[in-house]
Amino acid sequence: MYLSRVRVATEGLDRRALLNLLSGNAYTNHQLLWRLFEDHAERQFLFRQEIETEQVGAEQDPRGLPLFYVLSQSMPTNVPGLLLAETKPFAPELQGGEQLAFRLRANPTIDRKKSGKKNATRHDVLMDAKTQCRRENITDPEEIHARMNDAALQWLHRKSQMAGFTLEGTPQVTGYRQQSIHRKGRDIRFSSIDYEGLLSVASPESFTSSLSQGLGRSKAFGCGLMMIRRP
C-alpha cells in the first residue's frame, strides 16, 4: 500500500471545479483524485480531505486550501499542473496489543427492518438515535445529544470487533455533517463523523486488512480511511 499527501494546484482548475473543491464536494473530489490512477478502471484508493493549516514542506507554506490523504494499492502518478502527491510505502509492522492513536472519518449506518417490508432500510445511526428519542418522547436536548453520541460510539465498537482492534478509552466524536450529492439524476444522501482516540491492535492481520479496505460505507465520498500513528 501507499500513503500520499496530495496538494491541488488551483490554477489547473476551471471556476466550477474550483468551487466544488472549496465546497468539499466529495464526489467531485473523488473524481479529481482518480486522475492520480488513470490506468485503473476500478477505485482502489481511500481518501480523506483536510485543510492546509500545517507546514507541508520546507519551502511550502500552508494555503488554507483542501489537502488530501490517499491510501492506495498502487503508487499514484502526479498530474502536472493539477495534483502533486508526496508518497511513501505504507506497510506498518504491527504487534498484538500495540497501542496506536487514530483518526477516522466514517459514515456510520444501521439497518432497520420495517413491518411488511422484505428488505431492511439503511439509516444514519445518529438520526436513528434521534428518531428513537422522539418515539420515547425524550425532548431534553442534552439527553438527545448524549444518545446520538452513544450511537456513534456503539457503531465504532461493533466495527472494531470485526476489524481487529479494540478501543482504549472513549474516542472523541466531532464534525457531524450531513451531505447530499446529485449524481446520475438522483440525490445521494450520507453523513460523516470524525472519531479520534486510542486503539489497541487485537489482530495485526485483520487490522491491516481493515486499514486497506476502509471502515464503513461511503468510501467513494471521503469516508473510511483510518489514519494511525504511534503515540
Rank of each mutant, 00 (worst) to 15 (best):
46 L>A: 06
27 Y>A: 08
93 E>Q: 15
108 P>V: 14
91 A>T: 14
28 T>Y: 09
76 P>N: 02
88 K>L: 13
96 G>L: 07
75 M>F: 03
23 S>K: 07
22 L>K: 06
78 N>A: 15
29 N>C: 14
32 L>A: 04
72 S>N: 05
68 F>H: 02
101 A>K: 09
88 K>P: 03
33 L>N: 02
46 L>C: 06
15 R>V: 14
57 G>T: 03
99 Q>V: 12
90 F>K: 06
43 R>S: 08
88 K>Q: 15
105 R>W: 09
44 Q>K: 03
73 Q>A: 07
97 G>L: 10
54 E>C: 05
62 P>L: 04
86 E>D: 15
99 Q>H: 12
86 E>P: 02
16 R>Y: 06
108 P>I: 14
19 L>K: 02
83 L>A: 10
21 L>W: 05
103 R>I: 10
67 L>C: 08
54 E>D: 12
104 L>Q: 09
19 L>T: 10
23 S>F: 10
60 Q>W: 01
97 G>Q: 12
88 K>I: 12
68 F>I: 04
20 N>D: 11
71 L>F: 08
94 L>A: 13
90 F>V: 13
18 L>A: 09
42 E>Y: 05
97 G>P: 08
86 E>F: 11
17 A>P: 00
95 Q>E: 15
81 G>Y: 08
29 N>H: 03
81 G>P: 06
82 L>F: 07
58 A>M: 04
96 G>V: 15
97 G>H: 09
39 D>K: 10
95 Q>H: 13
70 V>Y: 05
64 G>T: 11
35 R>Y: 03
33 L>E: 01
108 P>H: 04
38 E>C: 02
55 Q>P: 01
54 E>G: 12
54 E>W: 06
94 L>Q: 09
57 G>V: 07
100 L>A: 07
56 V>N: 02
30 H>F: 11
35 R>E: 13
81 G>L: 08
17 A>T: 00
24 G>S: 04
89 P>F: 10
42 E>I: 06
60 Q>P: 00
61 D>F: 09
107 N>C: 14
49 Q>M: 11
91 A>P: 03
42 E>V: 11
63 R>C: 07
101 A>C: 14
56 V>D: 06
16 R>S: 14
46 L>W: 04
76 P>C: 05
52 E>F: 01
